[in-house]
Simulated assay, not measured.
Amino acid sequence: MGYVLEKEGMNQVLSNLSENYLIYAPKLYVGGGRLSDTDCVRYGEVNRIDEIVFDRKSEFSFKEVLTPITQTLFYYTEDTVKEADGPKKGAVIFLRSCDLHAVKRLDDMYLSNGPVDSYYERIREKVKFVLMGCSSAYDNCFCVDMGTNISENYDMSIDCSDNNYRVDCKSVEFKSLLKANAIREEEVSPAYVKETSTHVHIPENLSAEVATSSIWREYDSRCIGCGRCNFVCPTCTCFTMQDLFYTDNGKVGERRRVWASCMVDGYTEVAGGGCYRQKYGDRMRFKVLHKVLDYKERNGYHMCVGCGRCDDICPEYISFSTCINKLESAMEEVSSNES
Rank of each mutant, 00 (worst) to 15 (best):
I150R: 15
G253R: 06
K27T: 10
D220V: 04
C304K: 05
N16Q: 12
L206V: 06
S336V: 15
H290K: 05
I202V: 10
D248W: 01
K279E: 14
Q12E: 15
T268M: 12
A208N: 15
S18D: 06
C143L: 05
K175S: 09
V288G: 00
H302A: 08
M303G: 05
D162K: 12
L106K: 00
L66R: 00
G9L: 09
A330W: 00
A180G: 00
H201P: 14
M10P: 03
S221G: 11
N205G: 10
K82L: 08
N163Q: 14
G253V: 00
M146I: 10
I52M: 02
R285S: 10
T322P: 14
S329V: 15
Y120N: 00
C223D: 08
G2C: 01
L327V: 14
V30C: 04
A180I: 06
K194V: 02
S197I: 13
V53M: 03
D139G: 02
T148W: 03
D50Q: 13
A25I: 06
K170D: 05
T72E: 10
I49P: 01
N164F: 13
F129V: 14
C323Q: 13
L73D: 02
I52N: 04
R255H: 01
G133L: 02
R166Y: 13
Y301L: 06
L293V: 03
P115L: 11
I215C: 03
L177C: 08
A25H: 10
E204R: 13
L111C: 05
R48V: 05
G272C: 08
V92G: 05
I215A: 06
I52F: 12
K296I: 03
R96H: 12
D39M: 07
